[in-house]
Nucleic acid binder design. Sequence first.
DNA 1: TTGTACGCGTTATCAT
DNA 2: ATGATAACGCGTACAA
Lengths: 332, 332
Amino acid sequence: MVTMGDVAKLSGVSKMTVSNVINDRAGVSDEVRRRVLEAIRQSGYRVNLSARTLRSGRTGVIGLAVPEIDRPYFGQLAAHVIAEARGRGFHVAIEQTGAAAAGEIDAISHSYTMQFDGLILSAVGIDPQDSRLTGGGYPIVMLGEQDFAARFDHVAMPNEEGAKAATTHLIDRGCRRIAMVTGDSLDGVNVVTRRHRGYLAGLAERGLDPDPALLFPVSGMTLESGREAAYRLVDSGREVDGVVAVSDTVAQGVFRGLADRGVRVPGDIRLVGYDDIPEAAYMVPSLSTVAPDHRWMAAKAVELVTARIQDPSRPAGEHTAPFELMVRESTR
Amino acid sequence: MVTMGDVAKLSGVSKMTVSNVINDRAGVSDEVRRRVLEAIRQSGYRVNLSARTLRSGRTGVIGLAVPEIDRPYFGQLAAHVIAEARGRGFHVAIEQTGAAAAGEIDAISHSYTMQFDGLILSAVGIDPQDSRLTGGGYPIVMLGEQDFAARFDHVAMPNEEGAKAATTHLIDRGCRRIAMVTGDSLDGVNVVTRRHRGYLAGLAERGLDPDPALLFPVSGMTLESGREAAYRLVDSGREVDGVVAVSDTVAQGVFRGLADRGVRVPGDIRLVGYDDIPEAAYMVPSLSTVAPDHRWMAAKAVELVTARIQDPSRPAGEHTAPFELMVRESTR
DNA sequence: TTGTACGCGTTATCAT
DNA sequence: ATGATAACGCGTACAA
């Protein structure tokens, strides 16, 4: 392995000067810089990041913990975060939490062990009151929907606002019996409960009474659980003319489930999702959905975590992404 | 920061003994081990991976370079690789190559710089003859379709076999004018050309003549390029009763494009994809497709790269995944 | 079974 | 503008 010392010897300078050249520090004459760069090229020298990290205490890596990387929403998020971090000279390491509180706690611990400089945690299961959840000065940015009470930097989605807009949109299209397909636990503050609140707020704003019988719980944010909820919806025999799904992926499942039962969208039931995953615009019918600004969220999260890396004591802030309601064929 | 020395002091032993306890080495009395573990717990000590890496030369990280992590196929692949690597005590760092040869070369160089112990490279653009493409003893496993001539361990998809099976399936369903929507370059050996060969082989096996006018090139493996190819297909006015798409994502785009032009699937045109992404089964109509065994591929790739990490001089091998043709509604 | 001394490759400090 | 020296925290060789 070629070390800095080898390069120094080759170009007839000290290790320190080589280091200065590599890190673009001032105080190196053009002539020496040229010689050193030439020696690096010739020798094929590469910086040893472990040594640098050992000395400097920084890895240049930001962790990104998501529930499952194979869900379109998180794949997109990851792509944006990677791009944004690269622009700031950071590398991104992806962790999977399995959408469980334990996995999320592990991710923090693991991030620390791996010596990531900071962590962006897309939290869905964790309880903000969890005693194991202590920043301890370690730069963590939360990306999710719990209420972290300013204990962490937090980038939130416009869950209530978005779900409310989706619901009033259905009503304005003529729907009166609007079901919601959403998570099975309506306790606490999370994606599921906040979108449910938005749904209720939407009904209220248009003077409709909520009907608890029109809530169809799913155990996970998956295609299959959406389909299965649609079966229950149809088989219940209840009159329904609109469905708000907690996410686009669930909406895709609901759509398939309705089709399996011979129910047409938007003819019999209008359907709206949340997330605006890329596939939404390409479904037939295309899916109306709430589109939070993903790039904005990724950029904000990276901005916050890098700022906190530089100054761990800065005050934490709460930030909510802008959104747009994408009206497409499924609510035509 | 708590170091090994602190733990040693706290438990009244030497650093070496602490190291022995941590790495589960023999020659430590139960009593001492207990004391050390207690001290570790109390102090909150964590191994410093940089120091360990600097000393041992190993990071315990495997790089996974994919074109774009926000494409469902690669998201799934990543999820499987991460799970498999975890089982072998490795961590996975994801890189994005942008589906370009330059990005793939960069990924190798970057993987090396980041001191990953090995790299799984999902290559789509690289030329196996590229002079910059030299393993140099660094453990690289190729996951893609080029012909690497045993210079690298290589996990391949059953591209020709799969595309051929898809094509004969269309013919057996009664199709006679079968178009293919595929990449725009039919040079070299890659996903595009191999699936195209499979398509030709399928036609040949059933005694149909290929018609070059039924090739509709796309510039990328995206939803949008699939849609746009469908427009060209319909607008060309050519008679077509079946379409083989180069991937499921492209097939989704084709399906949407056909719908935009009022062409029904499978009524007017039967459609088959490749990959079996999760969404395929949930489309309406559900998408018939070739399902390579993704988990098998991920497991094999991780197995190969870990084996090569242990023994860099082992002979390289070529491995092709098994597949299954998923017959669904789009070819009903 | 435990301890000592040194080296891994880099960077910070201080001196020249 | 450049160089010498000492750390960073861990693991290995060898000594006790």
